[in-house]
Amino acid sequence: MKRIQLPVDEATIRSLRVGDEVSISGVMVTARDAAHKYMIENPAEEMRDLLRDSIIYHCGPVVRQMDGEWQFVSAGPTTSIREEPYQATVIGKFQVRGVIGKGGMGPKTAAGCKEHGAVYLHAVGGLGTSIAKSVKRVRDVLKLEEFGSPEAMWVIEVEDFPAVVTIDANGDSLHEKIEAESAERLKRLLG
C-alpha cells in the first residue's frame, strides 16, 4: 500500500504503476457530469487552486447538514466513463494529478494521463458508508444551487481513501489487460 498525500507532485504520480494499491489523504474535489461540462465551457478560474496537484473524485454523495456543517453520509464512486469526452482536457487545463472513479476510462483519458502526468484510480464500487467515513471534513461546496447536491463540486478533506491505480502515467491500463486475458479464457470455454 502506497501513501499519497495531497497536493502531490508530478514525479510521485509518474512513479505509480498499474495495479498499485494506494491510500490517499488530503483535499480533493468531487465532480461529475455537470461539473465537467462547466469546467470545459467556462474559464472556471476559481477551480485552479483547488485542482492543481490534487484529485477529482467522480462521486454523487448522499449528504446532510448538521448544525450548519455539511457531512457525507454515503459517498462511493460513480461510473467514470461518462466523463471520457472531457477528462483529458480537464486534467491538462487544471493540472490535475489524478481522477478517482469506477469502471475505468478510455484511450483519450489514458493519453491525457500520459501527457500531463496523471493517473486513474479505481475505488471499490459500493463503498458508500466507508468512503463517507473517510471524509473527515467538507471544506466547501461550489455550484450547489445550480447543479443540485449529487452534481455539485464538494471540496473534501479525506483520510486513508483506498484505491487501485488502473491507468498509469505511462498510459498502461489494467482494464485492457484484464479484458484481453478474460477474452482468451472465454474463447477456451466456448471451444
Partner: peptide, 22 residues
Amino acid sequence: ALRLVLRNVAEAEQGSTPTCQD
C-alpha cells in the same frame, strides 16, 4: 477489495446509512 466491502457493510449496518449511495 472484498475485505473493504465487508467492512463497509458492517459500518452501514451499524450506523443505518446506505451500503451504497446509489
